[in-house]
Amino acid sequence: MSAEPDTEAGDVATPSGDAASENGPPIPDPESVDDEGYVIGSGRSGIVRRIGHDDFDPVGTLVLIAIYMVIVGAMWIFMYFVEFLGGDLTVIG
């Protein structure tokens, strides 16, 4: 029994830098997990979860940019085709 390791089946921390933390499931860094709240400089230093390049989906950013572009496009159409081309006394020569 004394030979049993501290961790079981990788669901508790493995120190960062360990080979198992490179591609495995989420592994919290045991040194940063405490009950004393956040202390400046006490952020987790280990890799919590490693994801691929395209696995990060900033959907909120995409939606914000889409809304922004729709507003810009609509304002341009209104400004040019309604306000400008629909305006009086346009210079034609």
Partner: peptide, 19 residues
């Protein structure tokens, strides 16, 4: 209130045609 406007520059004649 219209699209017709131009600068008036000394020595230069600005021409704008409108209907």
């Amino acid at each position: 209130g219209t699209n017709a406007n131009t600068m008036a520059i000394p020595g230069q004649v600005a021409t704008i045609t409108v209907e």
